[in-house]
C-alpha cells in the first residue's frame, strides 16, 4: 500500500538518506527509531514532500512518484492522501481547535462546512478535547495542542499518518496522554509511521520496528526482535545508550 524504493536525500554535501526501501501494509504501525541525525525525520518528510528526495520512488495508494521528476499535482495528490503530526504541533495559530481540524477537509477536500464540523467535533471528542472546540492554540497546553494535531491528521482520513517525534517537545507530564491517544488511533486500524524515542511505546503498539542509522535501515522486525534481541552491533549500542540496562537482554 505504501512502497518506498531507493530513497536518497542530501543537504549540500551531507548525505542524510542513502537508499531507504520500505513496504508498509494497510493498517500497519511502523515505529522508526534511531539516533538524532540518523535521518528518521528527513525520511518522514520525504514521504509527503516537505523535503523532496533526490532519488527514489514513492508510491502511496494509487499515486506512484519518481522523486526525480515530480509535478506539483503529484505532490498535492500525495499530500492529500497523507497527514502529519509535528514535533512542535504546528497548529494554525489563527484558528480554533475545531477550525484546525476541519481546515484540510473544507479547503483541500471541499467537504461542506457543516459536515466537516460534525466530523471535526466527533474526532475532537475521540482525542478527549470535547471542552475545547473553540479554544485557540495559545490557550492550550502542549499535550492538548498535540492531541488537536493528531485530530487534524485523522480528520482528513489519510492513507497513512506520519508522526514526527510527536512527544519530543512535550513536558513529561503530557507525554502519557499523547501516547494514549496514539495507541487508540493505532487500534483504530489507521496506518501509521512513527518516528520516536519512546522505546516502550514502540514495544506496545508497533507491528514493526525499524532502526535507522546513517541514512539506511540497519535492522527491522517485530518489537521483540529488534528491541529485545537485536542482531546488529549498531542497534545494540543505540539501545544500550537509551535504555536502562535491566530492560534489555542480549
Amino acid at each position: 500500500m505504501i512502497q518506498v524504493k531507493g530513497l536518497h536525500k542530501s543537504f549540500g554535501k551531507h548525505k542524510v538518506l542513502r537508499g531507504i526501501d520500505l513496504q508498509v501494509a494497510k493498517g500497519e504501525v511502523i515505529v522508526v527509531i534511531g539516533p538524532s541525525g540518523s535521518g528518521k525525520t528527513t525520511f518522514l518528510r520525504c514521504l509527503n514532500f516537505l523535503e523532496q528526495a533526490d532519488e527514489g520512488e514513492i508510491s502511496i495508494a494509487n499515486t506512484c512518484i519518481n522523486c526525480r521528476h515530480v509535478t506539483q499535482k503529484e505532490i498535492l495528490q500525495i499530500r492529500r492522501s497523507t497527514a502529519m503530526v509535528f514535533q512542535l504541533y504546528n497548529l494554525f495559530q489563527n484558528k480554533t481547535a475545531l477550525e484546525n481540524v476541519i481546515e484540510g477537509l473544507v479547503v483541500a477536500r471541499k467537504v461542506p462546512h457543516a459536515e466537516a464540523a460534525a466530523t471535526g467535533r466527533r474526532i475532537l471528542d475521540k482525542v478527549g478535547m470535547t471542552e475545547k472546540y473553540d479554544a485557540y492554540p495559545s490557550q492550550l497546553s502542549g499535550g492538548q495542542q498535540q492531541r488537536v494535531g493528531i485530530a487534524r491528521a485523522i480528520a482528513v482520513n489519510p492513507e497513512v499518518i506520519l508522526f514526527d517525534e510527536p512527544t519530543s517537545a512535550l513536558d513529561p507530564e503530557w507525554v502519557g496522554e499523547v501516547l494514549g491517544v496514539m495507541k487508540q488511533v493505532a487500534r483504530g486500524g489507521l496506518t501509521m509511521i512513527v518516528a520516536t524515542h519512546e522505546i516502550s511505546f514502540a514495544r506496545d503498539i508497533a507491528d514493526r520496528v525499524i532502526f535507522i542509522d546513517g541514512g539506511v535501515i540497519v535492522e527491522q522486525g517485530t518489537p521483540e526482535e529488534v528491541l529485545s534481541h537485536p542482531q546488529e552491533e549498531r542497534t545494540k549500542q543505540f539501545l544500550k545508550r537509551i535504555l536502562p540496562a535491566a530492560d534489555y537482554a542480549i
Binding site: 509527503n48 514532500f49 516537505l50 498535492l76 499530500r79 492529500r80 497523507t82 497527514a83 502529519m84 509535528f86 512542535l88 504546528n90 497548529l91 494554525f92 495559530q93 489563527n94 484558528k95 481546515e103 484540510g104 479547503v107 483541500a108 477536500r109 487534524r152 491528521a153 482528513v156
Partner: peptide
C-alpha cells in the same frame, strides 16, 4: 515555517496556505 508545513501536510496549495493561514497571521 511550521505553519506552511502544517498547511501543506493537510493538502492546502501554496495560494490557500498564504490566504488562509499565513496572511491572517
Amino acid at each position: 515555517v511550521g505553519q506552511y508545513e502544517a498547511a501543506y501536510s493537510v493538502g492546502l496549495t501554496t495560494g490557500q496556505t498564504l490566504r488562509r493561514i499565513v496572511l491572517p497571521q
